[in-house]
Design a binder for these strands. Structure first.
Lengths: 191, 191
DNA sequence: TACTTTTGTGACTGATTAGTCAGTTTATTT
DNA sequence: AAATAAACTGACTAATCAGTCACAAAAGTA
């Protein structure tokens, strides 16, 4: 980045346009020119804010992940029990997936694209610790017993992710029922 | 395809070379020329077997999926109970993931790349019915009760996939233990 | 106002590559 | 052996696009 930290409106517009276009087409079929056009800036402007197209996609990825991580963990510690804390994370996962279909599509598509660098993934990972924290705490208080903490947290996160994905594509009517059955399934497994 | 259905050795060589190169670099950074070179055929030969680079990647994807689907369901009905049938699928999923890291990496990376067409995905889906069949049968015999069959099957498959992915990257020593804990978790959930 | 600095611009370029096609080699048939 | 068909080849081309850079506009300063 060449320009001061201040989040210029142009930078914001470029990121928004990128999210839209990277979802509609793949990275390689989205020219920087088309992004600039969608964002109503000159073709050179993009490169004032991002050194390369790759850096742009990495920034966008990190931003989406951070936003999601912050959303799911907000308010988690207001719940008194492990079960409620975990349910909080699950419910907010589903809710975020429903509210942000485009960001989800983008993250899903690009996380395994080879474009997101190891460094970006690590930076994103540092912010994704809600499940880990909750399970670790529950083990301390005796509310949960797991042998391989790492694997179980991974499995729970992955389960939440996949079920969130599934539910978010369903009718509003059936969501509550599906959500309860899905949580009940994994919760029973943990006991 | 211009040439008879017969699986020519050249076709095989092109698919093998593609798998290797598509894993090392992304689709767009893998030139058809480099694939032809790796496969020891002329650059034109690739287009005798596949109309385009896109068709090639779709064929490769379908082949990998089919091979996996066949592997996990082989022998499943030799087990007498739902639990053993499900464990069979889970164990074979993990085993296949361990044995075919490259194919897994390829499928993971390309399934959400936007390159695999809806038609290819549907064709692949038709072959992925092991979990569905087993759960449906168990509901008939009363061994299982689920409300949303579709979602539960989806969740189980996704769980197997993610845990398989996790375990296959671990040490040989800890695999058995992790595998048992992971299966136990989801199995308890189903009861 | 006049001068300096920051920010924004878009025509242009150098490099890359999917796919073609005219021709060669190999296999099959008569 | 000759003729025909099938399989294969690689030099070539037409198109694309990330990133540059010389300049313009806007904002800041004195």
């Amino acid at each position: 980045m060449k320009i001061s930290e201040k989040q210029s409106e142009k930078r914001r517009a470029i990121l928004d346009a990128s999210l839209k276009l990277f979802c509609e087409k793949c990275f390689q079929d989205t020219s920087t020119a088309s992004i600039s056009q969608e964002a109503n800036v000159g073709t050179g402007t993009l490169f004032c804010y991002f050194d390369s197209k790759e850096e742009l996609v990495n920034e966008l990825y990190l931003e989406c992940k951070s936003e999601f991580a912050e959303y799911i963990e907000t308010g988690v510690w207001e719940h008194p029990t492990f079960k409620l804390q975990l349910k909080h994370i699950f419910d907010r996962t589903v809710q975020w997936y429903i509210d942000n279909p485009r960001k989800i599509k983008f993250m899903l598509q690009y996380s395994s694209s080879g474009l997101i660098t190891k460094v970006t993934k690590e930076r994103a990972m540092l912010r994704m610790n809600a499940v880990n924290d909750v399970v670790k705490k529950a083990m301390e208080t005796g509310e949960a017993t797991v042998q391989s903490l790492e694997m179980v947290c991974y499995a729970i996160s992955a389960y939440f992710h996949q079920v969130g994905l599934y539910i978010s594509e369903k009718d509003t009517k059936s969501i509550k029922k599906l959500q309860d059955e899905a949580f009940s399934l994994i919760w029973k497994g943990l006991n």
